[in-house]
Computed example of a mutant assay.
Amino acid sequence: MPSGKFSSITTDAFVENVHFSLQYFSFSDIGAKSLSAAISDIAAIGGIPSVAVLSLFIREGIKKSEINELYKSVKETAKKYWVNIVGGDIVKAEELAIVFTIVGEIDKSNITLRSGAQVGDIIFVTGNLGGAYTGRLVLERGLEINAFGFQDIAKKHLRPEARVDESQKLIKNLKINSMIDISDGLSTDLLHIAEESRVSVQIEASRIPISEETKRAASLFKLGPIETALRSGEEYELLFTVSPKETEKIKQLDLKIPVTPIGKITSKEEKNVIIFPDGTKKPLIPTGYVHIA
């Protein structure tokens, strides 16, 4: 490892009927999403992914052509993010699953952890939220995606983007105090930052970026858009905090996607809250994915 660099490593599992369903996932989708999700972990700490190994668990009924389709998608996704697949294993199992281990590198001066948020920091998020959750509902219910105009949220669930380029632009141009990718949901991942930084968070409901497509889908399923955005996991957007003096620099970056301030970091003695447009304050509780109930 070159001087001034750290190695970064992550592992991520993608399991049938936990993370995906063959009712609406193609094997190509499985390959793309499983690798992108693992790469997102490296992006979230400011790293650049370099190599990957995978373990593929195959159950009865899976065809060789389907395995080939999955592998082809993995190779295409790896090429997109400049990642080399350097090895792996394949095993017969009771469930279909794919597990990636990704190794990357990061400048020691650029490492961004979830534990560095400072009182007074402004909380930012990339992209729009809620699409992954509503996209899953659309797919589970077998709605006609094109007829309803739900192409973007379906894609958000099936083939999310890892924000590697965006992460690099942010850390090279700003002093990022803390960062995490939204894999468990906005509310849950905000509280991860709060807990590990020993601070509290205050966010404004009206500032949470939600696309019109997500709002339409939420309405169709009789869900509130804010509650949907708070719970929606597998978004893989970047959630980060910077000091107020850094905020003007964000406007000058050409990230190609929205970057929205949604709140601020407060002292540990204060409560984690979400403020609604009428001024009502409610406790911010984790409503996203629970790994172990």
Rank of each mutant, 00 (worst) to 15 (best):
residue 3 S to C: 11
residue 3 S to R: 15
residue 9 I to V: 13
residue 10 T to Q: 06
residue 10 T to Y: 02
residue 10 T to G: 03
residue 11 T to N: 14
residue 15 V to P: 01
residue 16 E to D: 08
residue 17 N to L: 07
residue 19 H to W: 07
residue 22 L to E: 12
residue 23 Q to Y: 13
residue 24 Y to P: 02
residue 26 S to W: 03
residue 27 F to D: 03
residue 27 F to I: 11
residue 28 S to A: 14
residue 39 I to V: 09
residue 40 S to M: 07
residue 42 I to Y: 03
residue 43 A to G: 05
residue 43 A to S: 11
residue 46 G to I: 02
residue 48 I to F: 07
residue 50 S to V: 15
residue 53 V to S: 14
residue 54 L to C: 14
residue 54 L to P: 13
residue 54 L to N: 15
residue 57 F to Q: 13
residue 58 I to K: 08
residue 59 R to K: 15
residue 60 E to F: 00
residue 65 S to R: 12
residue 65 S to Y: 06
residue 65 S to G: 00
residue 67 I to P: 09
residue 68 N to K: 15
residue 74 V to I: 14
residue 75 K to C: 04
residue 77 T to L: 05
residue 81 Y to W: 06
residue 82 W to K: 15
residue 83 V to H: 06
residue 84 N to D: 15
residue 85 I to G: 05
residue 85 I to S: 03
residue 86 V to W: 10
residue 89 D to E: 12
residue 93 A to L: 05
residue 98 I to A: 07
residue 98 I to E: 03
residue 100 F to L: 11
residue 100 F to I: 09
residue 101 T to N: 13
residue 101 T to K: 13
residue 104 G to Y: 04
residue 104 G to R: 00
residue 104 G to L: 08
residue 108 K to I: 15
residue 123 I to N: 00
residue 123 I to K: 01
residue 126 T to H: 08
residue 127 G to M: 05
residue 130 G to I: 10
residue 136 R to W: 10
residue 139 L to Y: 10
residue 141 R to Y: 04
residue 141 R to K: 14
residue 142 G to Y: 11
residue 145 I to K: 06
residue 154 A to H: 09
residue 158 L to A: 07
residue 159 R to E: 12
residue 160 P to K: 06
residue 163 R to A: 02
residue 168 Q to M: 03
residue 170 L to T: 13
residue 174 L to R: 11
residue 175 K to L: 05
residue 179 M to A: 09
residue 180 I to T: 14
residue 184 D to L: 08
residue 185 G to R: 02
residue 187 S to H: 09
residue 187 S to L: 03
residue 188 T to R: 07
residue 189 D to C: 00
residue 196 E to K: 14
residue 197 S to A: 06
residue 201 V to K: 00
residue 202 Q to V: 10
residue 202 Q to G: 14
residue 205 A to S: 04
residue 205 A to M: 03
residue 205 A to I: 09
residue 207 R to Q: 11
residue 207 R to G: 04
residue 208 I to V: 03
residue 208 I to Y: 10
residue 209 P to K: 06
residue 213 E to R: 01
residue 213 E to C: 08
residue 214 T to Q: 02
residue 216 R to W: 07
residue 216 R to E: 09
residue 216 R to M: 02
residue 216 R to A: 04
residue 217 A to F: 05
residue 220 L to W: 02
residue 221 F to P: 01
residue 222 K to F: 09
residue 222 K to G: 12
residue 224 G to F: 05
residue 230 L to K: 03
residue 232 S to D: 12
residue 235 E to G: 12
residue 236 Y to L: 09
residue 236 Y to D: 11
residue 237 E to D: 12
residue 240 F to V: 13
residue 241 T to L: 07
residue 242 V to K: 00
residue 243 S to C: 07
residue 244 P to I: 00
residue 246 E to K: 02
residue 246 E to P: 10
residue 249 K to W: 06
residue 253 L to W: 02
residue 260 T to L: 01
residue 260 T to Q: 01
residue 262 I to P: 03
residue 264 K to I: 14
residue 266 T to R: 05
residue 266 T to V: 08
residue 267 S to Q: 12
residue 267 S to R: 14
residue 271 K to C: 00
residue 276 F to V: 07
residue 280 T to N: 10
residue 280 T to D: 08
residue 283 P to W: 05
residue 284 L to A: 10
residue 286 P to W: 03
residue 286 P to N: 09
residue 287 T to A: 02
residue 288 G to C: 00
residue 289 Y to F: 10
residue 291 H to V: 15
residue 292 I to Y: 13
residue 293 A to H: 13
